[in-house]
């Protein structure tokens, strides 16, 4: 019962963080800061949802598979973010830095 409640909390918190990240990619002003908003959904949101599912699964093959999915996401998402940022910078997309900040236009 307690495990059920815990996993529900994890699932709902994960879903809420996902929506926050989704709002973030619309509110942040330029590409590089949007990458941070996407980072939220890639790390903590995914962790919470997979943790919530793992609590439902208990010790089984399903839990092992969830752990494996978590590991893949954990290793590949920073690589993808880095590749995106690096490619964008090399192609000459300049980040909008602090000096010319405008309030949350998107």
């Amino acid at each position: 019962m307690i495990i059920d409640i815990l996993s529900w909390i994890c699932l709902v918190a994960g879903g809420a963080l996902g929506i926050v990240g989704g709002i973030g990619i619309h509110r942040f002003p330029d590409f590089y800061s949007r990458l941070h908003a996407a980072g939220i959904t890639d790390t903590f949101c995914a962790t919470l949802i997979l943790l919530g599912l793992g609590l439902q699964a208990g010790w089984s093959i399903a839990a092992f598979k969830l752990a494996l999915i978590f590991m893949f996401l954990f290793f590949t998402s920073p690589t993808a973010s880095h590749a995106l940022a690096n490619a964008a910078l090399h192609s000459g997309l300049q980040p909008r830095l602090d000096g010319d900040e405008r309030e949350g236009s998107s």
Binding site: I23, F28, P29, I40, T43, F44, P95, G104
Partner: peptide, 23 residues
């Protein structure tokens, strides 16, 4: 990661425009 997540989420949800100062 948890601490940074909460910080960024707060910045996204700040009422008057997302308060970012990219560096």
């Amino acid at each position: 990661i948890v601490k940074a997540n909460i910080d960024v989420a707060k910045r996204i949800l700040r009422w008057r425009g997302a308060s970012v100062s990219p560096q």
